[in-house]
Simulated scan of single mutants.
Amino acid sequence: MLSYGQFCPLAQSTQLLCERWTLLIVRELIAGSTRFSELEKGLPQISPTMLSRRLKTLEHAGVITVNKEKAHTTYRLTQAGNELRPVVELLGAWGHRWARSDLSGGDLDAGLLMWDMRRSVNPEIFDGREIVVQFLYPDAPRGAQAWWLVSRDGDTDLCLSDPGFDVDLVVQSSLKAMTRVWICEDTFNDAVRAGSITVQGDPELAGRLQDWLGASPLSRLGASGKAPELSWQAPDQA
């Protein structure tokens, strides 16, 4: 970890947190990931070696704890790590307003999109009944064109192969169209009306999809229009 050579608290925190991938790892832990494999799903382009290195740095800094159990190892935020939540939320909201992706091909990833969507599904929208929704992305790379979200018993599973259940709804769109919905640049219902997303299945169930899927929590913060509040102010200049 490179040092700025400054005692300033901002310098000390940024030299720890602003290394590549570090804050995104914290984002994933805040979102509920606790296992190495879950972190990889939320960070599909990170190498296992880099992920291990960053986790060790965060553990050494007291940002996370590592619990090694017989079956697996879990990673959890400490008090110091949990105090980063408003930092991550502010940066995410700022990014939504001022540094958005142009959604070119390099920023689109079907696996990351579906993994993120799975975490925000609200199973209560369908009154607790089992719902299977298939998503088709014809422009995604081979092997990432078909996905299934299975919502049952208050939980939601993401499948890349056919889970064998009857499908209630089939949603088809380009990756860009669904990503625009996810990051609050469009609404699901507006995209359906415009024809960029098509839905096949029970119309009554289809009408609830927008509320069931939700949207990116960080993008929602940015779309809310609330400016971040600053508690530190520089002294007035004479």
Rank of each mutant, 00 (worst) to 15 (best):
Glu28Val: 10
Cys8Thr: 10
Pro203Val: 12
Ser52Tyr: 06
Ser173Pro: 04
Leu149Arg: 04
Leu16Glu: 03
Glu28Asp: 14
Gly5Tyr: 07
Leu24Gln: 15
Pro235Gly: 08
Leu158Lys: 04
Gly128Phe: 10
Gln6Asn: 11
Ala238Tyr: 09
Ala223Tyr: 03
Arg76Val: 14
Gln200Val: 15
Pro228Arg: 06
His72Phe: 14
Gln233Val: 11
Arg142Pro: 10
Arg119Tyr: 07
Gly92His: 01
Gly222Phe: 00
Leu230Gly: 11
Ala71Cys: 09
Arg85Val: 13
Ser37Lys: 07
Pro228Thr: 05
Leu84Glu: 01
Asp157Phe: 15
Leu39Asp: 00
Lys226Leu: 15
Ile197Glu: 05
Gly92Ala: 08
Leu23Arg: 03
Ser33Tyr: 01
Gly81Gln: 01
Leu205Met: 09
Ala238Trp: 10
Thr179Gln: 13
Leu51Arg: 00
Val192Thr: 06
Glu59Trp: 06
Asn189Cys: 14
Leu112Val: 05
Ser224Asp: 02
Glu69Met: 12
Glu59Met: 14
Asp107Phe: 09
Pro138Met: 13
Asp168Gly: 05
Val88Cys: 07
Gly207Phe: 11
Ser3Glu: 09
Ile131Phe: 11
Leu51Ser: 04
Arg53Asn: 12
Gln200Pro: 14
Ser52Trp: 05
Val199Leu: 04
Phe188Asp: 02
Arg193Asp: 15
Met117Gln: 03
Asp109Ile: 00
Gly214Ser: 05
Lys70Tyr: 08
Ala31Thr: 11
Leu103Ala: 01
Arg27Ala: 15
Leu55Pro: 06
Leu16Gly: 04
Val150Cys: 01
Leu51Gly: 01
Ala80Trp: 07
Ala99His: 14
Ala11Pro: 04
Asn82Thr: 12
Met1Ile: 11
Ser196Val: 13
Leu108Ala: 03
Leu23Tyr: 07
Ser37Ala: 14
Val26His: 01
Leu103Lys: 05
Lys41Gly: 03
Phe188Lys: 07
Pro217Phe: 06
Ser37Gly: 09
Leu43Ser: 01
Ser231Thr: 13
Phe135Ile: 05
Ser216Leu: 13
Asp236Ala: 15
Asn67Val: 13
His96Glu: 06
Leu91Tyr: 07
Gly62Ile: 09
Leu10His: 11
Glu185Leu: 10
Val167Glu: 02
Cys159Leu: 12
Trp148Glu: 02
Arg53Asp: 12
Leu43Arg: 00
Gly5Gln: 05
